[in-house]
Amino acid sequence: MSGPLSSLVRREIAIARRIGGGGSMGVVFLLVLVTIVPFAIGPDLNLLRRIGPAILWIASLLAMLLGLDRLFQADWEDGSLDQLQLGATPLEAVVFVKCLAHWATTALPLVVAAPLMGLLMAQEPESMLGIGVSLLVGSPAMTFIGAVGAAATVSLRRGGLLMALLVLPLCIPALIFGVSAANAAAGGTVPFLTPLAVLAALTLASGALCPFAAAALLRRLGE
């Protein structure tokens, strides 16, 4: 395969691997956040067990925001964004593929690491599995929504904080249903699949809509 989009995927992953930091930095950030929570809350295992899924979801969401501001900014600075608009490939598809590559390099390590860190939050195996599955299904939504924020702040030098302010409120639905799915896996009255289905719908809808919003912003602001 050597089509424009597959070569874009290979390029994005190669850059992420060479520069490094993206994925491992997120995992370390997650570990730090999860480690300090028991110090603040105290050694109450029941309480930790109850709030564990929520803490892991919030920590993953924040960790995903870390590298997101560079998603388009690096391309904007070095002129790649201009060239990416000259291809026969629509910019929307370019944005979609860049999101997928970004998700694979930064969110996927979190999806793998977060359930293991459930150990620090006294999570049962079923609950750890629930956290992993809910993050796997829900994290692409956060990447797609984040891409809109990254596109809106593409030309701002210190746009990271503004991006977080734009993106975090929009991630609330994913957070609600993600945590509720993770909680449902640990037991309770709600079946696991109900919130998970809503979460999957959020991911699919954001994957379908957000690339258009981000591409429109990049065309306007990337000049």
Binding site: P4, L8, R11, A14, I15, R18, G79, S80, G87
Partner: peptide, 20 residues
């Protein structure tokens, strides 16, 4: 702006733009 990624080799950069 040159549109060259500093982390990739010149050949990789050009091969990508050639395909894209």
């Amino acid at each position: 702006a040159e549109g060259m990624k500093p982390a990739l080799s010149v050949g990789e950069n050009l091969a990508f733009w050639g395909a894209f």
